[in-house]
Design a binder for these strands. Structure first.
Length: 732
RNA sequence: GCCGCCGUAGCUCAGUUGGCAGAGCGACGCUUUCGUAAAGCGUAGGUCGUCAGUUCAAGUCUGACCGGCGGCUCCA
C-alpha cells in the first residue's frame, strides 16, 4: 500500500500504482471530476501518472490541483495548444511542429507550414478542435531514451523536434512524449487527463515568428489561442480585451485630438496637437519645479552632434543600425561611408566592392577634394578601408543625437570641476532620434523621435549611494503624483559571458553591487535580469502596472562608470589630485511620448483635473448668455485654468453631451438664472449636476483639486490580469 | 528588417460574378434661443494609398512601392 499525505495532514492509504486522480476519486466523485493535475513539492504534474513514479518521499505529499487553482489554467491551455496542433495537422498534412507553450492568458503553437493560415481558416480549425475535444481522448505520457526519441521524431518527419532534442535538450537522457489519439508530441507536460476538460477555447490571431527567435532562422506561423474551464470566464476575459482595445491611445489620441502621426512628416514621428501638448507641458512644468527643488540645473543642447562624439561614447558603433545615417557636409561623403561598411567583413549584408563602384567612389573622393592617387587599385580590403577611414575623418559628419549623455558630458567638461562642485546634476528634456525598425513602431509608445525627461548626475564615488537613493525617491515621487503606485523594479545586469559591454568586469561589479545594496536599503524588491544591462552600465527599470493590470516599462536609473572613463572626465579632489567622477543617467518618465501614451490608456483618456488638456468648458444656455459665459471663461483663464467656451447654436443638452464625450472634467452652465448673481451651475464629468454656486466658490474648488493633483476616479476594470505573467511556460 | 492581414469622404464603415461612388457621425449654411448626455432642414466633401499591368470596361483582378495593424526580432 502507498501512503499519501494531503495538505491538511490527512494520510490516505492507496494502491501502489495509484494516481492523483485515484486519490481524488477515493475522496469524492466530484473532486475527481474537478481535478486537473497534481502538485508535489510545488511542482505541477500529471493527475494520471502513478504517484510512486513522481517522488521517493513517503508518505507522498500530494496537493490536488482543481479547476479553481490558478495553476490549472496553465495546464489546460498547454493541453489546448496540443489539441490545436492536432487539428492543424489533420487539416494541413505534413506540417512541421515547433514550440507550443502557454502564455499569461493563453497559448500559442508555432508551425512550419508553407500554406499561409489566415483568420478565415480559424472557424475550420476551431471546428476540428471541437471534434477532438468532443472525443475526449486521454493524454498518454511515455518516455524514450535520447537516441530512440530522436529516431522517433525523425520517423514522424518532425525535423524541428529532432533539432531541438539534439541541440536544446542536449543534457536530457530521456525525453517525454504525450500521445492523444493519432497525435504525438515531444512535451515536458503536464497535461489535463483528457481533451474533454476544455470547455471554452478560441483561436485569437495568427502571426509570423522565427524558429528559436532567430531572425536569420526559419520563419514559422504562430497561432495564438486561449482556453478556459468556464465559458463565462472566457467571455469576461474577451470583454476585457475589448476594453483594452477601446483604450488604445492611438484611437483615443485621434478622437480627443491629442496627437497625430502624419505620413507626410514620417513614420514614427509624433505631432503633439494642442491638447496633447497641454498634457505634456503640464507634466514638464511639474517635473521642472521638482528638479529645481532637488538641486538640478536645467541645460539645453543641440539636436545633432559630431559623429566622433558618439564614437567616443560608443553609441555610434554599437547602435549603428538603429540610428539615422550620419549627415555629411558634402553629399558624396555618404558614398565613402557606404564603402567603408561594404569593405567591413563584419557587415556581410552589403554587396562586395566592384571595380565600377570603385571608380564611382574615386570620383566622389575627388569631388570632396581628396588625393585619390594614393588609393591602391589592387590593394587589400584592409588597405582600402584604412584610406577610406582617413578620408571619412577629413570631412565633418554629424549625427542626429540618439542620446543626450555625450552632450551633457561636454557641458560637464566645459569648466574644470572641483570636488566642491559635485554632485553636478544636469537636466534637459532632450529630444533624441533613433531609427527603430519599421515593424516596431507603435503610436506614441515606440517612435523615432522622442523627448526624454533626461538628466545626468556627476558625482564622487562616495556620493553614488546617496545620489542613487535620491534618484529612486524622485522616480517614486513622480509616479505617485500621477497615481501610479503599483510597480516593480527590474535590475538589469551584465551577462559575464557576453562581449557586448564596455568597461572592466571590476567596474561592473562595483556598479551592480551598489545598485543591489541601495535597492535593498530602500526596501524595493527587484528581479535581476542578467544580460539586460545597457552596454555602458547596469540599470534599474521601473515596470509600472496600469489600472488594467498591464505592465509598462517607464522610468529608468542607470549607473555608469564607463562614459566618465571614455570621455576622461575629471574633478579636482581635496587632495588636489585629479579624480574620475561617476555618472548616473536617469529618466523618471522615460520619454514624454511613451509616458503620455501610457497615461492615455491608463486613464482611458479621462485625465485627472490637473492634467486634463481642457479642464473646464463654459456652456452658455443660449446666445443671450454668450457674453456672460465669455466673462466667466476669462476669469477662469486668469486663475490659470485651461478653459473653452462652447458658442455653438445648440441646446445645452447637446453641449453637455459633447463635453462629456470629450472627457472635460467640469462644465459650467451659464444661463439667465446664474448671470445675475455672478454665479455658475457646475456639472462634473463624474458626479453630474453639482448645483449653482458663486464663481469664486467654483474657482476655489477647482484650485484645490488642481493643486492637490487629485485623482478622483480611475475608469476601473473588473479584470486585473491582462498580463500577469510575461514569460513562457511549458516550453516544449 | 521578417511573417501574416489591411488601405473607399475629416472619422467609422457598406460597395454583388469587373459595368454611373454610398451611409451614419462630423464640417458648413439656414431656422430654432432652449436649464444638465444628440433640435429641424439643407449644402459641400472622394483621381477608391501610389504607380504600372490585364480588360471594351478596374474601387473590385495581377505586380511593385508607400502606409497602417497583429506578431517575431530589437529597444542606448
Amino acid at each position: 500500500m502507498l501512503q499519501v499525505k494531503l495538505p491538511d495532514g490527512t494520510i490516505l492509504e492507496q494502491l501502489d500504482n495509484a494516481t492523483a486522480l485515484d486519490v481524488a476519486g477515493s475522496i469524492g466523485e466530484r473532486l475527481a471530476r474537478a481535478t486537473v493535475a497534481a502538485s508535489i513539492h510545488g511542482s505541477i504534474v500529471d493527475a494520471m501518472r502513478p504517484l510512486c513514479e513522481l517522488t521517493d518521499d513517503r508518505p507522498i505529499p500530494l496537493k490536488l490541483v482543481t479547476e479553481k487553482d490558478p495553476d490549472a489554467l496553465g495546464v489546460l491551455r498547454h493541453s489546448c495548444a496540443h489539441v490545436m496542433a492536432r487539428a492543424v495537422m489533420r487539416l494541413y498534412p505534413g506540417v512541421g511542429l515547433a514550440f507550443g507553450p502557454t502564455l499569461g492568458t493563453g497559448f500559442y503553437y508555432d508551425f512550419d507550414l508553407q500554406t499561409p493560415i489566415s483568420e478565415d481558416d480559424f472557424p475550420r480549425i476551431e471546428a476540428e478542435m471541437q471534434k477532438i475535444i468532443d472525443a475526449a481522448e486521454p493524454f498518454e505520457r511515455f518516455s524514450l531514451p535520447r537516441a530512440a526519441a530522436i529516431q522517433f521524431c525523425a520517423d514522424l518527419n518532425q525535423e524541428l523536434k529532432v533539432e531541438h532534442i539534439s541541440a536544446g535538450l542536449a543534457d536530457h537522457e530521456a525525453l517525454s512524449f504525450y500521445r492523444q489519439g493519432e497525435f504525438v508530441d515531444l512535451c515536458r507536460g503536464p497535461h489535463i487527463p483528457h481533451a474533454g476538460r476544455i470547455r471554452a477555447f478560441r483561436i485569437l490571431s495568427v502571426a509570423g515568428a522565427y524558429w528559436k527567435g532567430n531572425a536569420a532562422g526559419r520563419r514559422l506561423q504562430r497561432l495564438y489561442g486561449t482556453a478556459w474551464f468556464d465559458r463565462r470566464e472566457m467571455n469576461a476575459w474577451l470583454e476585457q480585451i475589448e476594453e483594452a482595445r477601446k483604450r488604445d491611445h492611438r484611437v483615443l489620441g485621434r478622437r480627443l485630438g491629442l496627437f497625430s502621426i502624419s505620413t507626410d512628416v514620417g513614420q514614427g514621428l509624433c505631432l503633439w496637437l494642442p491638447k496633447g501638448a497641454a498634457i505634456r507641458a503640464t507634466l514638464e512644468e511639474f517635473i521642472k519645479a521638482e528638479l529645481l527643488k532637488r538641486g538640478y540645473q536645467p541645460v539645453y543642447s543641440p539636436h545633432i552632434g559630431r559623429v566622433e562624439l558618439y564614437e567616443t561614447s560608443g553609441h555610434f558603433p554599437y547602435y549603428r543600425d538603429s540610428q539615422f545615417s550620419p549627415i555629411f557636409g558634402h553629399p558624396a561623403g555618404q558614398l565613402i561611408d557606404h564603402w567603408i561598411r561594404s569593405l567591413d567583413p563584419q557587415d556581410s549584408q552589403l554587396p562586395p566592392f566592384s571595380p565600377d563602384a570603385e571608380q564611382t567612389l574615386l570620383q566622389a573622393a575627388r569631388l570632396l577634394g581628396f588625393e585619390t592617387d594614393a588609393f591602391p587599385a589592387s590593394g587589400t580590403a584592409d588597405q582600402k578601408t584604412e584610406i577610406l577611414r582617413r578620408w571619412e575623418k577629413q570631412q565633418e559628419r554629424f549625427l542626429l543625437k540618439p542620446m543626450n549623455c555625450p552632450h551633457h558630458v561636454q557641458i560637464y567638461k566645459s569648466v574644470p570641476r572641483s570636488y566642491r562642485d559635485l554632485p553636478v546634476r544636469l537636466a534637459e528634456f532632450g529630444t533624441v532620434y533613433r531609427h527603430e525598425q519599421s515593424g516596431e513602431l507603435n503610436g506614441m509608445l515606440r517612435v523615432r523621435g522622442l523627448t526624454q525627461d533626461d538628466a545626468h548626475l556627476f558625482c564622487t564615488a562616495e556620493q553614488v549611494e546617496q545620489e542613487f537613493t535620491q534618484t529612486l525617491d524622485l522616480v517614486r515621487f513622480v509616479l505617485q503624483s500621477v497615481g501610479l503606485e503599483d510597480y516593480r523594479v527590474q535590475l538589469s545586469t551584465r551577462d559575464p559571458a557576453s562581449d557586448k559591454y564596455v568597461g572592466s568586469p571590476e567596474l561592473w561589479e562595483t556598479a551592480q553591487n551598489t545598485l543591489r545594496r541601495v535597492l535593498q536599503e530602500q526596501g524595493l524588491s527587484y528581479v535581476e535580469m542578467p544580460g539586460e544591462a545597457a552596454f555602458y552600465g547596469p540599470k534599474t527599470d521601473f515596470m509600472v502596472r496600469d489600472c488594467l493590470g498591464r505592465e509598462w516599462q517607464l522610468g529608468t536609473v542607470q549607473l555608469d562608470y564607463n562614459l566618465p572613463e571614455r570621455f576622461q572626465l575629471e574633478y579636482t579632489g581635496a587632495d588636489n589630485k585629479p579624480h574620475r567622477p561617476v555618472m548616473i543617467h536617469r529618466a523618471p518618465f522615460g520619454s514624454m511620448e511613451r509616458f503620455v501614451g501610457m497615461l492615455i490608456e491608463h486613464f482611458a483618456g479621462a485625465f485627472p483635473f490637473w492634467l486634463a488638456p481642457e479642464q473646464i468648458r463654459v456652456l452658455p444656455l443660449s446666445e443671450k448668455t454668450d457674453a456672460y459665459a465669455g466673462r466667466v471663461a476669462e476669469q477662469l483663464r486668469a486663475a490659470g485654468f485651461r478653459v473653452s467656451c462652447d458658442l455653438q447654436s445648440a441646446r445645452v443638452q447637446a453641449k453637455i453631451r459633447d463635453a462629456q464625450l470629450e472627457l472635460v472634467p467640469y462644465m459650467l452652465v451659464c444661463g439667465p438664472k446664474a448671470a445675475e448673481p455672478n454665479s455658475v451651475s457646475v456639472r462634473c464629468r463624474l458626479d453630474g449636476d453639482l448645483g449653482v454656486m458663486s464663481l469664486e466658490d467654483a474657482i476655489r474648488r477647482f484650485t484645490l483639486e488642481r493643486d492637490g493633483r487629485t485623482i478622483r476616479q480611475l475608469p476601473k476594470s473588473s479584470f486585473s490580469g491582462m498580463q500577469t505573467e510575461s514569460g513562457e511556460h511549458n516550453a516544449y
